[in-house]
């Protein structure tokens, strides 16, 4: 087995009560020249893992927010090479685990070997391809193994127990638990927490090799705590992008985004303290 990656070490080293927060950001949103500074702020504000979205023209598992962010990034010329450059730039000052997330076609067009070689060379840690479920593309599973990139797969409320066990075996780093049956996007908090509890218990029972992070529809600290009670942590994507969209390009938008992220992770009390130390 290959040596432990950043993601495994993160979960091993965290205190048992602490929730890991993974943030999804479309690479290059809202402005490719600001991505490195924005990521630095996200990390300083409590992000434990960065999921860097590789924008695609036809993101069919995503709701309006990530569709929008993808289009903004693509319109500014973001492509896989510029994303690898961003990661190398981030790595000059940060050891945050970075997971590349996106649809398969741009990766195929780049060339699978070239893609995995560059992902490793730029020091990314994992990959999530929402349109490549386990078993569908064995070559990708081999390349993840060969290059030491963690393959991260999703489980959904309609995933059977047996399939969850398969997904657990095919994954490394963590398993991404999709809290609701639907596309990505911030939802009414009640909807998420009401439906999710029985499902999470089923995930816990079947996903035994990997930590579990729960995502889809989380938009506040309260949502995050409600759904991640029995998991190692949570993922926020659309709510972060919606927040940036609401303040960009106003003054101090990066610092304000940091405040938003601190509140997501620690709740409003901590944010008040950090504002008035």
């Amino acid at each position: 087995m290959s040596k432990k990656g950043r993601i495994q070490r993160l979960f091993e080293n965290k205190a048992s009560h602490e929730k890991v927060m993974s943030l999804f950001l479309t690479a290059g949103y809202p402005d490719p020249s600001e991505t490195v500074a924005l990521v630095s702020e996200l990390e300083a504000s409590g992000a434990d893992i960065l999921e860097l979205g590789m924008p695609f023209s036809d993101p069919l598992a995503d709701g309006p927010t990530i569709q929008y962010a993808s289009k903004v990034a693509l319109d500014q010329g973001v492509n896989l090479d510029s994303i690898f450059d961003m990661i190398m730039e981030i790595r000059k000052s940060s050891q945050i685990p970075i997971v590349l997330m996106g649809y398969i076609n741009p990766v195929l067009k780049y060339g699978l070997d070239a893609f995995f070689y560059k992902a490793k060379a730029s020091d990314a840690d994992g990959i999530i391809l929402p349109d490549v479920p386990p078993g569908e593309f064995p070559e990708i599973e081999d390349l993840c193994q060969k290059h030491g990139i963690d393959p991260i797969h999703l489980v959904a409320p309609n995933t059977s127990d047996r399939r969850m066990q398969e997904i657990d075996r095919a994954s490394r780093g963590f398993v991404y638990c999709v809290s609701v049956t639907g596309v990505t996007g911030a939802r009414d908090g009640g909807e998420v927490s009401r439906s999710v509890s029985g499902f999470i218990q089923r995930v816990r029972k079947n996903v035994t090799r990997n930590p579990v992070l729960v995502g889809f529809g989380i938009r506040s600290h309260a949502d995050a705590m409600a759904v991640s009670n029995e998991t190692e942590g949570f993922i926020v994507g659309s709510a972060l992008i919606d927040y940036i969209r609401s303040i960009y390009p106003g003054p101090d938008w990066i610092r304000k985004t940091g405040d938003f992220v601190r509140e997501l992770k620690y709740g409003s009390q901590i944010r008040e303290e950090s504002r008035h130390p």
């Binding site: 490549v132 569908e136 593309f137 797969h153 999703l154 489980v155 309609n158 995933t159 399939r163 639907g182």
Partner: peptide
């Protein structure tokens, strides 16, 4: 061909 779809659609 194949089934390159989100996991949610696999059971369907």
């Amino acid at each position: 061909g194949g089934r390159y779809v989100p996991e949610i659609l696999i059971p369907a």
